[in-house]
């Protein structure tokens, strides 16, 4: 008996967003006319990209497995970025964590220096993430924006409190804004509308729907992403931005990945568990629509890179 496979025809398309260029390697993400990796309905013209997190200060409380994997590179963002590139990063996600009021409170001048250094060290596209304090984000992201003028960086996070400044910097210097909202489809859409209202082109916006790690709200993120992607495929232009997920940090900060002692024996080998934690979070969110996953462990980079290749095959 011949089985007739039901095919969905979607009217919408995810925006194609380019990062890098102008002497730097460039990458295009998005462009899907189907649900993630579902070849029967439409096309997925660009493979999802792997961004690797690089911090501007030595991470204070990282898992010993991450520290062991990166070694001395953690002390210098330029070295770290180079190493990340060797490990297979498509994008460097530079986090200006030292600008956090409690972790150094550095300002625009330091941010400029760091960004210059990292831009010089690697030729990959670069994402710059602020310390997640709206005011400081503005300060360092605007500084980073001018340094990277024309190199189409992605700047984040652009949230309801500071979206105007970050979007303005993106317009002025030709960058892409990462619009971050707290796991809510309507808030995500609203922020996209507001950013577009300011004048940033829709193809210069990425959405960060806020990542809940495995065991820590991943189901909320997963479903909001599926809904955002379905809305985009139905034809809603204001949800058609590609999505980025901060997988590494949200996996490795959890005690299941971080705690070295004092955990039940039933949890098994620490490193194996931690890698699975990051890997499963990444694969799940790729399946719900992530176009960029930000990872932390070198082994995960390799595994996810391979999984993406297989999913695209």
């Amino acid at each position: 008996m011949p089985v007739e496979i039901p095919v969905e025809k979607w009217a919408g398309k995810v925006n194609e967003v380019k990062l890098g260029g102008n002497g730097r390697k460039s990458i295009v993400i998005g462009g899907e006319t189907t649900l993630p990796f579902l070849k029967i309905d439409g096309a997925m013209p660009h493979r999802p990209a792997i961004a690797v997190e690089v911090d501007d200060v030595m991470p204070a409380d990282w898992s010993p497995h991450l520290i062991a994997a990166w070694g001395d590179a953690l002390e210098d963002p330029a070295v770290w970025a180079k190493k990340a590139a060797e490990y297979g990063a498509d994008i460097i996600a530079l986090t200006l964590d030292s600008a956090h009021p409690e972790r150094g409170n550095t300002g625009a001048a330091e941010a400029k220096k760091t960004v210059e250094k990292v831009l010089a060290a690697v030729d990959l596209p670069v994402i710059i993430i602020g310390p997640d304090v709206a005011e400081k984000d503005n300060e360092v992201l605007i500084a980073a924006s001018s340094v990277g003028r024309g190199q189409r960086l992605a700047l984040g996070n652009c949230v309801d409190k500071n979206y105007r400044s970050v979007a303005a910097a993106c317009i002025a210097d030709g960058h892409v804004a990462i619009a971050k909202t707290p796991i809510d489809i309507n808030l995500a859409k609203q922020l996209n509308i507001l950013i577009c209202d300011i004048g940033l082109a829709p193809d210069a916006i990425l959405m960060d729907p806020t990542t809940g790690g495995l065991g820590y709200g991943i189901e909320y993120t997963y479903s909001v992403m599926e809904r955002l992607r379905l809305a985009a495929l139905i034809g809603d232009k204001m949800t058609s931005m590609p999505m980025i997920c901060n997988v590494g940090e949200e996996s490795w900060r959890q005690k299941e990945a971080r705690a070295t002692s004092g955990v039940p024996a039933t949890w098994g080998d620490h490193q194996e568990r931690a890698l699975a934690w990051e890997g499963i979070t990444a694969v799940s969110l790729l399946n719900s629509g992530a176009d960029i996953v930000v990872l932390q462990h070198p082994r995960t980079i390799a595994l996810i890179k391979d999984a993406i290749s297989k999913l695209m095959a």
Binding site: L214, E219, T266, W267
Partner: peptide
């Protein structure tokens, strides 16, 4: 069988099958 991978898989299953 490895408890280190069973735990994340069981968590994944728990998460995906909660009523949204």
């Amino acid at each position: 069988f490895s408890p280190a991978t069973a735990y994340p898989l069981l968590t994944m299953r728990l998460n995906m099958y909660t009523d949204p």
